[in-house]
């Protein structure tokens, strides 16, 4: 077991731990911090298996841009807002059940595919260095990337619609 393996293990555990805390924490700021911890740990894992470009963008875009805006907004929220401390309510048990099913399915798939997956460093040696990555990205994947941004826009609209709906429900 090399130092890299130990570090990958450490970052994996900390990523999962961050995810669990993110789900369990009540206060939005704690949730944001846990999410940041998860993202940083994932970036560590990516960097250790040689996907430097992905690791850097994970920190640069998700933590440096997205989460900074999240923290900025949460900072400005009313601190006295006690709704953040409410219990999960009716959706808690269905959510746990669905999460359990998801973990089982993923675990099953991973178990089956585990034997046939190539080791992380084989074959993509150099593909995820910054220069080849950006060249391939701008040559082949720019359209997919732009389409993904449209999906994000739809997601934002959906979130607004959900919030509006619940507001109307509150009266």
């Amino acid at each position: 077991m090399s130092l890299v393996d130990i570090l990958i293990g450490f970052f994996t555990v900390s990523a999962i731990g961050g995810g669990v805390v993110m789900l369990l924490a009540r206060h939005p700021m704690r949730v944001a911090l846990a999410l940041i911890a998860t993202m940083l740990s994932l970036a560590g894992v990516y960097a250790l298996v040689g996907l430097h470009a992905v690791a850097v963008f994970q920190v640069f875009i998700y933590v440096g841009a997205v989460m900074v805006f999240m923290v900025y907004v949460i900072m400005l929220l009313d601190i006295g807002d006690r709704r953040a401390l409410h219990r999960y309510g009716r959706v808690l048990w269905p959510a746990i059940a669905a999460g359990g099913v998801l973990v089982l399915v993923l675990g099953h798939l991973g178990w089956r595919a585990g034997a046939s997956l190539p080791p992380a460093s084989a074959g993509n040696e150099g593909t995820f260095l910054v220069q080849p990555f950006s060249a391939a990205f701008l040559a082949n994947w720019w359209l997919a990337f732009e389409l993904a941004s449209v999906v994000l826009l739809v997601a934002v609209l959906g979130a607004i619609a959900v919030i509006q709906g619940s507001r109307r429900h509150d009266g």
């Binding site: 430097h52 470009a53 920190v59 640069f60 440096g64 989460m67 900025y72 910054v130 220069q131």
Partner: peptide
């Protein structure tokens, strides 16, 4: 690291969170 300059900006972004968290 081949992504050197990007790493610089990535880490610089984290310290913004520190300042905002401190004030909050």
């Amino acid at each position: 690291i081949d992504a050197g300059l990007l790493v610089v900006f990535a880490f610089a972004g984290i310290s913004i969170i520190g300042a905002m968290l401190a004030g909050w």
